[in-house]
Structures are given as structure tokens and as C-alpha cells.
Design a protein around this nucleic acid. Structure first.
Ligand SMILES: [Mn+2]
Ligand SMILES: [Mn+2]
Ligand SMILES: [Zn+2]
Ligand SMILES: [Zn+2]
Lengths: 140, 140
DNA sequence: CAATAAATTTAGAGTGATTCTAAATTAAAG
DNA sequence: CTTTAATTTAGAATCACTCTAAATTTATTG
């Protein structure tokens, strides 16, 4: 985990990204960064914030998730066509995706080796390598 | 490419999967399998079929893509939250995803090595390993 | 080649996640 | 404090995708 711990550190990170440290953004940051790494959907984070008594709207949750992603505090993981997942662990790593439960679990990046990449598209530059290991429940 | 070449071969493959080789399914198969491997979205395939003068509805395109996927003739690639991509190459391989254009390009599977997978979820079994190399246009 | 049964196609309505709009609120600056 | 600009928000809108139910087509049977 390389994300800010307390309100002050986070507020500073937000300001540096040109984002005002508002009550909503600090509340959501609390949910996202206070207790280790998380993989959340917008709806799940919204439900959690509401349950915790934080005053936020769903629109703000979406706005905030995208702003945090733009600021490098979150990263988006593409595993499901119907839902966007956001990851509070922005360091280089990969994922298990449990097809039944929708749960994401980290895989350290050293477990995967990418060799020479053949037929790289002309004029293109690698921006990220994402490995998703889809798993399903073993037949009993 | 390990997919059927001509109408007859394909019709046989469809029958084996319990799917009647209808005009629509054969038309779409023509688009998908006649000229090498393809990566298409439902909308793109629909536009293409309509342009080629094949009579198909968008609903049928969606149905067919899913049926073909179920029959193992296509595979779905998750790279974009807003769109489903279908790949006519069902053999083991990976992808470049060009973030600006949305284009997918194959990477042979031997270019990527996945080592021991740590912290495999309890009782889970790997169903597929997907590697996506996101690329963007190099700054000029 | 009918006649019948079952699968398929389709237009259009419905869904659900996400985005947009425009008005109300709040944070920063003076 | 005022003023200004950013932020929040409810609700409308969008968009990919799915569903429904009626019309059509395919396969089967006599
Ligand atoms: Mn979730
Ligand atoms: Mn496409
Ligand atoms: Zn992660
Ligand atoms: Zn491919």
C-alpha cells in the first residue's frame, strides 16, 4: 500500500492534483484507503458510504472515482463488461477474478513474466500490462 | 485460425452445437470467419452485415455472438467497460489494446509466461489467463 | 409435397450502469 | 464578510445490452 494514511496527507495529495479536499472526497478516501487495499465498484462504495453515515450522492461517487483515478490514487480494472472496478492498490500487480462472486484478489507482479512482445503496433508505446486470471469454483 | 472455412463445414459445426444453420447465422459466420481472425463488437458486426446487404437485426447479432461463444466458435475479450469484444481466434493467445482506436491485436501465448500463482483462492480452479497489453500513441 | 412442431428472428420495450444538466451548496480567495 | 469558482446533487438522459411476444423460418413427419 503506497497511499496516504491520514486526512492531512490525503488532503495534500488532493490539492496537488488540483482537487479540493471536500467532505465527500475525504469521506470516500477514508473508505478507500483507511483499511488496506480494496477493489470496489461505484455502487458498492456508494452503499458503504451511505451505511457509514457519510453524506454522498451516487453521482459524486462516480465523479470522485474518476478524479482519483486521474490523480493516480486509484486504478481501474477491466474484468466485467457490466461493472467498473476500482483498485486502491496502484502499484504494479495483477488479479484473480472469481467468476461466480465477482471478487478480485491481487497477484504480485513478479509471478508473471512478459517476454519480448512481438508485432507491437507501429508508433505505439506500452502503457500497462494487465493480467487477469479468471477462476471458478472447483466442481465438488 | 482453427475455424471452419466454408458454409458446409460451418453448418456442420453449428448443427453439432445444436444450432440450426439459418441464413442469419451463416451470414454472420461469413463475416466472422471468412477472412482470417477478427475482433469485433456487436455494433460493428451489425453495421458490417447491413452494409454487405445481409438481412439481420441487432438482436440477432447479439444472440448469435453469444451462441457462437457458447459453442466455442468465438471468445469474448474484456478490455473496455463500455463494449464487448468478440474474437474469432479461439486459440490460446493474448492481446494488445490500442487505447485511442479501440483496436485489438493478437499476441502469441508463448510471449507471456505465468509462473507459480501465489495465493490462489481456496477451492478455485483457473479457467483462463488473459493478458492485455494496453498501448497508446507515442508522443511525437 | 403438405402439415405440424419447434426453433429462430425481430421490432420495440425494458434494464441497469453510467453520464449529463442545471440549480443549490460549499470552499477558497480577496 | 463578499465574491468567485469549484463541487455536489437530484433527476433526466444515454447507451449497450436484454427481454418479450408475435411473425417467420426450419426441421420433421405422414
Ligand atoms: Mn464490488
Ligand atoms: Mn470494433
Ligand atoms: Zn489489485
Ligand atoms: Zn485475438
Amino acid at each position: 500500500m503506497n497511499t496516504p494514511r491520514n486526512q492531512e496527507t490525503l488532503a495534500r495529495a488532493l490539492r496537488k492534483a488540483g482537487l479540493r479536499p471536500t467532505r465527500q472526497r475525504l469521506s470516500l478516501a477514508q473508505c478507500l484507503f483507511a483499511n488496506g487495499d480494496r477493489h470496489v465498484t461505484a455502487e458498492a462504495l456508494y452503499a458503504e458510504a451511505v451505511a457509514a453515515g457519510y453524506p454522498v450522492s451516487l453521482a459524486t461517487v462516480y465523479n470522485t472515482l474518476h478524479q482519483f483515478t486521474g490523480a493516480g490514487l486509484l486504478r481501474q480494472v477491466m474484468v466485467d463488461t457490466n461493472r467498473s472496478y476500482f483498485d486502491s492498490n496502484t502499484s504494479d500487480h495483477h488479479h484473480y477474478f472469481h467468476e461466480e462472486t465477482g471478487e478480485l484478489v491481487d497477484i504480485p507482479s513478479h509471478a508473471v513474466t512478459v517476454g519480448d512482445l512481438p508485432n507491437m503496433p507501429e508508433g505505439a508505446e506500452v502503457s500497462r500490462v494487465e493480467v487477469v486470471v479468471r477462476v471458478h469454483q472447483r466442481a465438488s
